[in-house]
Protein backbone atom coordinates (compact mmCIF):
# COMPACT_ATOMS: atom_id res chain seq x y z
CA UNK A 1 0.00 0.00 0.00
CA UNK A 2 1.47 3.35 -0.94
CA UNK A 3 -0.66 5.78 1.07
CA UNK A 4 -2.56 5.12 4.28
CA UNK A 5 -4.66 7.87 5.84
CA UNK A 6 -6.41 7.33 9.15
CA UNK A 7 -8.84 9.63 10.94
CA UNK A 8 -7.38 12.78 9.43
CA UNK A 9 -8.90 16.04 10.71
CA UNK A 10 -7.77 19.59 10.12
CA UNK A 11 -8.98 23.05 11.11
CA UNK A 12 -7.87 26.30 9.50
CA UNK A 13 -7.28 29.40 11.60
CA UNK A 14 -7.64 27.80 15.00
CA UNK A 15 -8.27 30.32 17.79
CA UNK A 16 -9.43 33.04 15.37
CA UNK A 17 -12.95 34.09 14.44
CA UNK A 18 -12.25 32.78 10.93
CA UNK A 19 -11.73 29.18 12.02
CA UNK A 20 -13.08 26.53 9.72
CA UNK A 21 -12.88 22.78 9.93
CA UNK A 22 -11.72 21.58 6.53
CA UNK A 23 -11.40 17.84 7.17
CA UNK A 24 -13.28 15.59 9.56
CA UNK A 25 -12.12 12.05 10.29
CA UNK A 26 -11.05 11.14 6.79
CA UNK A 27 -9.67 7.61 6.31
CA UNK A 28 -8.71 5.74 3.15
CA UNK A 29 -5.84 3.91 1.54
CA UNK A 30 -4.31 4.16 -1.91
CA UNK A 31 -2.71 1.09 -3.42
CA UNK A 32 0.13 1.02 -5.87
CA UNK A 33 -1.24 1.33 -9.40
CA UNK A 34 -4.49 3.02 -8.34
CA UNK A 35 -6.03 5.70 -10.50
CA UNK A 36 -8.03 7.60 -7.93
CA UNK A 37 -10.33 10.57 -8.47
CA UNK A 38 -11.43 12.96 -5.75
CA UNK A 39 -14.58 15.02 -6.23
CA UNK A 40 -16.48 17.39 -4.02
CA UNK A 41 -18.09 20.78 -3.95
CA UNK A 42 -15.90 23.90 -3.71
CA UNK A 43 -14.65 24.10 -0.14
CA UNK A 44 -15.24 20.44 0.59
CA UNK A 45 -11.61 19.94 1.63
CA UNK A 46 -10.16 18.32 -1.50
CA UNK A 47 -7.13 20.59 -1.77
CA UNK A 48 -6.46 20.46 1.97
CA UNK A 49 -6.51 16.67 1.77
CA UNK A 50 -3.95 16.33 -1.01
CA UNK A 51 -1.70 19.01 0.50
CA UNK A 52 -1.48 16.78 3.55
CA UNK A 53 -0.24 13.87 1.48
CA UNK A 54 2.74 15.95 0.34
CA UNK A 55 3.54 17.28 3.81
CA UNK A 56 2.66 20.84 2.79
CA UNK A 57 0.28 21.15 5.71
CA UNK A 58 1.45 20.08 9.11
CA UNK A 59 -0.46 17.08 10.35
CA UNK A 60 -2.69 18.00 13.30
CA UNK A 61 -4.93 15.05 13.99
CA UNK A 62 -4.83 11.54 12.62
CA UNK A 63 -2.24 9.45 10.84
CA UNK A 64 -0.72 9.56 7.37
CA UNK A 65 1.77 7.07 6.05
CA UNK A 66 3.24 7.43 2.59
CA UNK A 67 5.35 4.41 1.66
CA UNK A 68 7.63 4.13 4.71
CA UNK A 69 7.39 7.77 5.70
CA UNK A 70 5.25 8.28 8.78
CA UNK A 71 3.99 11.86 8.78
CA UNK A 72 2.74 11.66 12.35
CA UNK A 73 6.34 11.50 13.52
CA UNK A 74 7.96 14.63 14.85
CA UNK A 75 10.34 15.26 11.96
CA UNK A 76 9.37 13.26 8.90
CA UNK A 77 11.78 13.19 5.96
CA UNK A 78 9.96 15.73 3.81
CA UNK A 79 12.59 15.75 1.09
CA UNK A 80 12.21 12.03 0.54
CA UNK A 81 8.43 12.40 0.66
CA UNK A 82 8.44 15.05 -2.05
CA UNK A 83 10.70 12.94 -4.20
CA UNK A 84 8.17 10.12 -4.00
CA UNK A 85 5.00 12.18 -4.28
CA UNK A 86 4.83 14.68 -7.13
CA UNK A 87 2.21 17.35 -6.86
CA UNK A 88 0.76 19.41 -9.70
CA UNK A 89 -1.22 22.35 -8.37
CA UNK A 90 -4.19 24.10 -9.90
CA UNK A 91 -2.98 26.37 -12.69
CA UNK A 92 0.57 25.03 -12.35
CA UNK A 93 1.81 27.43 -15.04
CA UNK A 94 1.61 30.23 -12.45
CA UNK A 95 4.59 28.75 -10.65
CA UNK A 96 7.01 29.06 -13.60
CA UNK A 97 9.79 31.51 -12.88
CA UNK A 98 13.14 30.71 -14.47
CA UNK A 99 14.76 32.22 -17.58
CA UNK A 100 14.41 29.16 -19.74
CA UNK A 101 12.10 26.17 -19.88
CA UNK A 102 15.05 23.83 -19.31
CA UNK A 103 16.17 25.63 -16.14
CA UNK A 104 12.63 25.75 -14.82
CA UNK A 105 12.05 22.04 -15.27
CA UNK A 106 15.44 21.42 -13.63
CA UNK A 107 14.39 23.30 -10.48
CA UNK A 108 12.89 20.24 -8.78
CA UNK A 109 15.68 17.77 -9.63
CA UNK A 110 18.25 20.36 -8.52
CA UNK A 111 16.52 20.73 -5.17
CA UNK A 112 16.69 16.98 -4.79
CA UNK A 113 20.47 17.24 -5.27
CA UNK A 114 20.59 14.94 -8.29
CA UNK A 115 23.88 14.92 -10.19
CA UNK A 116 24.25 17.26 -13.19
CA UNK A 117 24.22 14.35 -15.57
CA UNK A 118 21.08 12.94 -14.01
CA UNK A 119 19.37 16.33 -14.03
CA UNK A 120 20.04 16.84 -17.73
CA UNK A 121 18.78 13.38 -18.52
CA UNK A 122 15.58 13.59 -16.47
CA UNK A 123 14.76 17.10 -17.73
CA UNK A 124 15.04 15.94 -21.31
CA UNK A 125 12.93 12.88 -20.61
CA UNK A 126 10.28 14.85 -18.78
CA UNK A 127 9.95 17.47 -21.51
CA UNK A 128 9.62 14.79 -24.16
CA UNK A 129 7.20 12.79 -22.04
CA UNK A 130 4.77 15.72 -21.82
CA UNK A 131 4.84 15.86 -25.61
CA UNK A 132 7.02 18.87 -26.28
CA UNK A 133 9.99 19.10 -28.61
CA UNK A 134 13.02 19.34 -26.31
CA UNK A 135 15.44 20.98 -28.75
CA UNK A 136 13.11 23.73 -29.88
CA UNK A 137 11.62 24.64 -26.50
CA UNK A 138 14.43 24.26 -23.99
CA UNK A 139 15.89 27.74 -24.45
CA UNK A 140 12.61 29.61 -24.65
CA UNK A 141 11.36 31.72 -21.76
CA UNK A 142 8.47 30.05 -19.93
CA UNK A 143 6.63 33.38 -20.24
CA UNK A 144 6.62 33.50 -24.03
CA UNK A 145 5.13 30.07 -24.83
CA UNK A 146 1.41 29.34 -25.18
CA UNK A 147 -0.92 28.52 -22.29
CA UNK A 148 -1.17 24.82 -23.08
CA UNK A 149 2.59 24.56 -23.44
CA UNK A 150 3.08 26.36 -20.13
CA UNK A 151 0.94 23.80 -18.38
CA UNK A 152 2.91 20.97 -19.97
CA UNK A 153 6.18 22.55 -18.92
CA UNK A 154 4.88 22.89 -15.35
CA UNK A 155 3.84 19.25 -15.31
CA UNK A 156 7.25 18.30 -16.74
CA UNK A 157 8.79 20.17 -13.79
CA UNK A 158 7.08 17.71 -11.46
CA UNK A 159 7.67 14.62 -13.63
CA UNK A 160 11.39 15.38 -13.79
CA UNK A 161 11.59 14.59 -10.08
CA UNK A 162 10.52 11.03 -10.96
CA UNK A 163 7.76 10.66 -8.40
CA UNK A 164 6.16 7.30 -7.66
CA UNK A 165 2.80 8.90 -6.97
CA UNK A 166 1.44 11.79 -9.00
CA UNK A 167 -1.20 14.08 -7.52
CA UNK A 168 -2.99 16.57 -9.76
CA UNK A 169 -5.36 19.33 -8.60
CA UNK A 170 -7.79 20.04 -11.43
CA UNK A 171 -5.21 19.65 -14.18
CA UNK A 172 -7.64 20.64 -16.94
CA UNK A 173 -9.04 23.81 -15.36
CA UNK A 174 -9.24 26.73 -17.76
CA UNK A 175 -8.31 24.79 -20.90
CA UNK A 176 -10.34 24.41 -24.09
CA UNK A 177 -11.86 20.97 -24.91
CA UNK A 178 -8.92 19.97 -27.07
CA UNK A 179 -6.39 21.07 -24.46
CA UNK A 180 -8.32 19.14 -21.81
CA UNK A 181 -8.31 15.99 -23.88
CA UNK A 182 -4.58 16.31 -24.49
CA UNK A 183 -3.73 16.81 -20.84
CA UNK A 184 -5.88 13.83 -19.82
CA UNK A 185 -4.26 11.61 -22.42
CA UNK A 186 -0.91 12.83 -21.15
CA UNK A 187 -1.82 11.86 -17.59
CA UNK A 188 -2.85 8.40 -18.77
CA UNK A 189 0.47 8.09 -20.58
CA UNK A 190 2.37 9.21 -17.48
CA UNK A 191 0.55 6.65 -15.39
CA UNK A 192 1.68 3.90 -17.70
CA UNK A 193 5.25 5.05 -18.13
CA UNK A 194 6.54 6.77 -15.00
CA UNK A 195 4.28 7.41 -12.01
CA UNK A 196 2.15 4.35 -11.54
CA UNK A 197 -0.20 5.73 -8.92
CA UNK A 198 -2.24 8.79 -9.82
CA UNK A 199 -4.60 10.85 -7.68
CA UNK A 200 -6.61 13.46 -9.50
CA UNK A 201 -9.00 16.12 -8.24
CA UNK A 202 -11.63 17.16 -10.74
CA UNK A 203 -14.85 19.05 -11.20
CA UNK A 204 -16.04 17.51 -14.43
CA UNK A 205 -17.58 14.15 -13.60
CA UNK A 206 -17.77 13.07 -17.25
CA UNK A 207 -14.07 13.65 -17.58
CA UNK A 208 -13.14 11.87 -14.35
CA UNK A 209 -15.35 8.82 -14.82
CA UNK A 210 -13.77 8.19 -18.18
CA UNK A 211 -10.33 7.73 -16.65
CA UNK A 212 -10.35 6.87 -12.96
CA UNK A 213 -11.05 3.44 -11.55
CA UNK A 214 -12.08 4.66 -8.13
CA UNK A 215 -13.78 7.80 -6.86
CA UNK A 216 -13.72 9.45 -3.45
CA UNK A 217 -16.45 11.95 -2.65
CA UNK A 218 -15.81 14.64 -0.06
CA UNK A 219 -18.62 16.71 1.36
CA UNK A 220 -18.07 19.39 3.99
CA UNK A 221 -14.76 17.85 5.01
CA UNK A 222 -16.09 14.32 5.36
CA UNK A 223 -15.45 11.34 3.15
CA UNK A 224 -18.92 10.20 2.07
CA UNK A 225 -18.22 7.67 -0.65
CA UNK A 226 -15.25 5.63 -1.76
CA UNK A 227 -16.31 3.38 -4.63
CA UNK A 228 -15.77 2.55 -8.23
CA UNK A 229 -17.55 5.06 -10.50
CA UNK A 230 -20.35 2.83 -11.80
CA UNK A 231 -21.30 1.84 -8.24
CA UNK A 232 -20.99 5.39 -6.92
CA UNK A 233 -23.51 6.81 -9.37
CA UNK A 234 -26.22 4.57 -7.97
CA UNK A 235 -26.40 7.19 -5.23
CA UNK A 236 -27.39 9.78 -7.80
CA UNK A 237 -29.95 11.58 -5.63
CA UNK A 238 -27.59 11.91 -2.68
CA UNK A 239 -24.84 13.17 -4.98
CA UNK A 240 -27.16 15.75 -6.45
CA UNK A 241 -28.07 16.92 -2.96
CA UNK A 242 -24.35 17.58 -2.42
CA UNK A 243 -24.28 19.66 -5.58
CA UNK A 244 -22.54 16.97 -7.63
CA UNK A 245 -23.56 15.66 -11.01
CA UNK A 246 -23.44 12.20 -12.59
CA UNK A 247 -22.06 11.59 -16.10
CA UNK A 248 -24.30 11.95 -19.13
CA UNK A 249 -23.78 8.27 -19.99
CA UNK A 250 -25.20 7.30 -16.61
CA UNK A 251 -28.14 9.68 -17.03
CA UNK A 252 -28.91 8.07 -20.39
CA UNK A 253 -28.81 4.66 -18.76
CA UNK A 254 -31.32 5.83 -16.14
CA UNK A 255 -33.59 7.33 -18.79
CA UNK A 256 -33.52 4.06 -20.74
CA UNK A 257 -34.19 1.99 -17.65
CA UNK A 258 -37.33 4.06 -17.03
CA UNK A 259 -38.48 2.94 -20.44
CA UNK A 260 -37.78 -0.66 -19.54
CA UNK A 261 -34.33 -1.13 -21.08
CA UNK A 262 -32.05 -2.57 -18.39
CA UNK A 263 -28.32 -2.11 -18.76
CA UNK A 264 -25.33 -3.32 -16.77
CA UNK A 265 -22.80 -1.04 -15.01
CA UNK A 266 -22.28 2.23 -16.82
CA UNK A 267 -19.81 4.90 -15.77
CA UNK A 268 -18.79 6.49 -19.05
CA UNK A 269 -19.38 6.62 -22.80
CA UNK A 270 -17.39 3.46 -23.50
CA UNK A 271 -19.38 1.47 -20.96
CA UNK A 272 -22.61 2.76 -22.44
CA UNK A 273 -21.68 1.74 -25.95
CA UNK A 274 -20.59 -1.68 -24.74
CA UNK A 275 -23.80 -2.28 -22.80
CA UNK A 276 -25.90 -0.94 -25.63
CA UNK A 277 -24.28 -3.25 -28.16
CA UNK A 278 -24.89 -6.19 -25.83
CA UNK A 279 -28.61 -5.46 -25.78
CA UNK A 280 -28.65 -4.75 -29.50
CA UNK A 281 -27.05 -8.09 -30.29
CA UNK A 282 -29.42 -9.95 -27.96
CA UNK A 283 -32.39 -8.38 -29.70
CA UNK A 284 -31.01 -9.35 -33.10
CA UNK A 285 -30.61 -13.00 -32.20
Amino acid sequence: MSIVIENLSFTYGKKTPYKKQALKNVSFTVNEGDFLGIIGHTGSGKSTLIQHINGLIKLEEGKIKVFDIDLSQKKPDLKLLRRKVGMVFQYPEYQLFDETVEKDVAFGPKNLKMSDEEIKQSVKEAIELVGLDYESIKDKSPFEISGGQKRRVAIAGVIAMKPKVLILDEPTAGLDPKGKEEILELILKLKESSAHTVIMIGHDIDELSRYVKRLIVLNDGQLVYDAKPAKLFENREKLEEMGLDVPIAYKLKCALSEKGVKMGEVANDDDFVREYLKIYKEKKN
Binding site: L56, R82, Q95, F107, L112
Partner: peptide
Protein backbone atom coordinates in the same frame (compact mmCIF):
# COMPACT_ATOMS: atom_id res chain seq x y z
CA UNK B 1 3.48 25.46 -1.50
CA UNK B 2 3.96 24.72 -5.18
CA UNK B 3 7.70 25.40 -4.99
CA UNK B 4 8.01 23.46 -1.74
CA UNK B 5 6.37 20.53 -3.50
CA UNK B 6 9.19 20.81 -6.02
CA UNK B 7 11.68 20.41 -3.21
CA UNK B 8 12.51 24.06 -2.55
Amino acid sequence: MAQKARGA
